[in-house]
Design a protein around this nucleic acid. Sequence first.
DNA 1: AAAGTAATGTCAATATACTTACATAAAATC
DNA 2: GATTTTATGTAAGTATATTGACATTACTTT
Lengths: 163, 163
Amino acid sequence: MKDANSKNNDIADDLSNRIFFRLYQCANALHKTGTNAVQDFGVTTQQLAVLGALSHQRAESGISVGELADFLSVSRQNLTGVLSRLQARGHISRSVDTDDSRSRRIHLTQKGLQLWRENLVPEISAYYCEAMQGFSTQDQVDTLHFLNKMLDNLVQIGTDKRS
Amino acid sequence: MKDANSKNNDIADDLSNRIFFRLYQCANALHKTGTNAVQDFGVTTQQLAVLGALSHQRAESGISVGELADFLSVSRQNLTGVLSRLQARGHISRSVDTDDSRSRRIHLTQKGLQLWRENLVPEISAYYCEAMQGFSTQDQVDTLHFLNKMLDNLVQIGTDKRS
DNA sequence: AAAGTAATGTCAATATACTTACATAAAATC
DNA sequence: GATTTTATGTAAGTATATTGACATTACTTT
């Protein structure tokens, strides 16, 4: 027989279990429907994130693979593959850094920039509008706050484990 | 020059953009740290989800691949691979349905059930506790509500697209 | 009953994601 | 200056995830 304490734990577990299950489902649905929304332009949601990041700083200098990986919170190894596919389609370019021959500077090509501005931005805007249906601005602020908090916790777990 | 309307849209886009980016980061971090937490037991977070689903209904009848796929919101094709790996490690069994020879009934094995109860449940419980640090019960309820709402929207986008 | 349709699970191809391992180049230390 | 350590990007291997295609089986329709 369970005491009140363990019962409360069960309830808390159930709540968090639902939250993380929904998170998992949302992420899958986001990837699936997002890719569906932009697949006519020959890109995926992850490639979208990369193009978006590159569009923010079209400075002459570009950005390195490591910097981009940090920004997107993915491994450098993962980016290598995504960048290769983007490069194969002519959306980005990789050039050796003149100051550090280990490093590669990643740039948006003219084609990539045009695709981003003319096709992807409007498409994403419409997609976000649908996905945020029924969310007030305050709801969105609250949601973002919770996700930020959760991410902090998860990152903390990751760094704890490493030590 | 932008008018007030397009500026508001930019702001809304920025908010939703942050939300979905955080969602993406949270899902990656969940998979990464979650797998890290249970890898000593030879399973991953997805396999965890399958074992958890199976543990809920240890009825004699088991569950079919299609039913499991619906429950977990993943494709049957995806489950085929996950189930194969779980079966290879002896955590689940697949048997032909006596009433429908197309269908396979998926069961937890004794080994799988023991692993779930004795090792995974405590580990997950501790993990959730860390991941929900700083979340009041009301915060968790609110978070779950927002995720439910978002998932509804995303599923709606998916079904719209299909028609 | 026979033919067409739908359901069930699997295989193949593609794209993320991770970790481990490695070649190369830069930085730090002695 | 030579050696060690660190940083950078990539390659290889494993596990998800998707869609498309398929063989097999069940159901529907005629």
